[in-house]
Amino acid sequence: MATIITKEQQEKEKMVTLVSSDSEKFVVEQKVAEKSHVIKMVMNCCGIESPIPVRRVKGDILKSILEYCEKHSKGEAQEVMEKWDKEYMDKAEKDLVFFHDLMLASHFLHIQELVDLIAVTFAGMLKMKSPEEIRQKFNINNDLTKEQEEHIMTTFGWAFQPI
């Protein structure tokens, strides 16, 4: 029994330093950083003594991601987690650029749970929108010709009707 406790304590003490693209430093527990598949691989081969650079991710994004990883490494009840996830998403989706970067970063760091969560929230945002609203929101150029657009409208008219 005693040995197990000390092992746990030892593991708790194992901290790792992550450095974002704008040189901001974050010191987190190893098990928190392990949530990212990519960082886990780096830690396995290079050890945790020297700081690990995360060059493609900015400080504010990395902070938000680590906040998620920390919460999810605690193993709390599912209901608590779901509620927390919802609040986390509500906060993140307010700023579209931030939200998008968060998704790219979690994809880059290979945190599949977070990618899934963001994708579901994203899909929810898009679901009821019209093509025009989508183009505006994401700054997409409409490169379809008038005929192509009209063809889609006439062939699939039902999808454009309000429910």
């Binding site: 994708a119 579901v120 679901k127 009821m128 093509p131 999808a159 454009f160």
Partner: peptide, 23 residues
């Protein structure tokens, strides 16, 4: 990858509509 991820979660009705977003 991410575009596929997001779009594949949408209902068919939305997808048919989004065919006219861009090429």
């Amino acid at each position: 990858d991410l575009l596929l991820e997001v779009l594949s979660l949408l209902p068919t009705r939305s997808l048919i509509r989004f065919k006219s977003v861009c090429k």
